[in-house]
Amino acid sequence: MHYAFAIMKAVPFDRSVLKVNQVILMVGIVAAHVVGLAHNQAAVVLPVLAVMMLAGMVSPQLNAPRLLYLHALKPWGIVRPRVVHEDPAPHRFAQLLGGVFLAGASIAALASALVVAWVLAWIVVVLAFLNFAFNLCVGCIVYAQLVKLGVLPLSRASAA
């Protein structure tokens, strides 16, 4: 079999970056929701977190949780590294999924559909919790299902 692109091997991947991202999401959304029960303005957290998730997809240099981990949490010994060898693509897709959900929540909040906004945000919390506590990456499962259905706009160059 030949491929027109270099086959990506499993690469060293520090799962602690994921854990930091998940904690920020969970704490941020839960705290904002509690405040949001009294003050609707707390929904401003949703677009902030959406930008954080989506920016991290664009470039590692824009990945705020990663920068926080590398420059503070790891050197200060607060979070230990957990390096594994795996394909990071499904985790990036899961991050994209979270960013899209939060972007949708932000749009719903702008449209004053606050219940929809917070339900979408809490779905992100639940999925982040499942990944944090049980290493269950629902986004990875969705990724596989969408690839199977041919929905994902992923393509590879024609096989040689």
Binding site: V115, V119, L120, W122, I123, V125, V126
Partner: peptide, 16 residues
Amino acid sequence: MSLLALAPLIAIAVVG
């Protein structure tokens, strides 16, 4: 209890 306060439960039901 308002629907807003029930958002976590709704989300859990959807994911479940």
